[in-house]
Amino acid sequence: MNPVKLKLKDITYYYDNFRALNNMNFELEENQIMGLIGRNGSGKTTLLKVIAHQLLQDKGEVIIDDKNFSTNESNQYKICLARETLGKTFEQTEIMKVKMIFDLAATLYENWDNTYANHLIKRFKLNVNKKYNKISKGMKTTVGIILGLASRAEITLFDEPYVGLDPVSREIFYAELQKDFTQNPRTLIISSHLINELEGMFERVLIIDEGAILVDNPIDKLKEKYYLLQGRKEAIESYNTHFRTMNVETIGSLASYSVEGPINEEIIRRLKADNIDISMISLQKLLYHLTNGGENNADR
């Protein structure tokens, strides 16, 4: 197990009277990729902004390498939050070429890799001589992605790194992320709605809703906890004392059960013997059921 890189302790954040984050606690190991998943307005961006010190929490601490980020200056420049914007005032009033932004980032981030930044600029076909406020939404996202990847910051946060991106650019991003992470492992948090495209990369998953954590598990633990059972309805129902049913979808006599375990080896063996197919529930479905998206999850 790697040492803990990032720790959030009792983080609470209010926008006026609205509680956006509610007493959040979690730990992330060094060189781990975490998927931050949640519905619109669940608090993903707020959480990333609080981690990156762009918003100051009402309560709690962000701890990096056992040091409080707010008070310890040694953690400076260790975080990069890649977003599709550089701030409202900056975008509206500053006339700055994209290459100047990268130049400033190179000055600021100690591990900045200029060769890699140039490689990414070519791959994404980004015109760095254009003014930042004149480029498209997708290009702004690309600027954020390049900042995030080339900064080589010890903790890199990507907030929905696909906004406005075409499918080709998205694939380039995924490929570059995987390649660069293999060569330069670091702690990554990626918030996303496009769960199916990214879930293969996640080592840990944090599902949040209404500012609270619903699931915080390594991906292999999720596989041991949430299952999709498919088979004859009566056959599956005969086992329903061994798990908690989150959702049921039926087609004739066949049914698809989304369930929360864990289910022990013996039961799994018996389910298989009864021709019930067992697989891991997709993260997208899990999010859907956990956030009351399903119709049959009355027991939540």
């Binding site: 010190h53 762009q54 980020f69 200056e73 400076q76 990069c80 914007t85 005032t89 900056f90 981030y109």
Partner: peptide, 20 residues
């Protein structure tokens, strides 16, 4: 005027602490 408006935004985006 730009320091505390435009460049404040820029520094915030680069995750520089407010103290810094």
């Amino acid at each position: 005027a730009k320091c505390t408006s435009v460049y404040y935004d820029m520094f915030t985006i680069f995750s520089i602490t407010r103290k810094r």
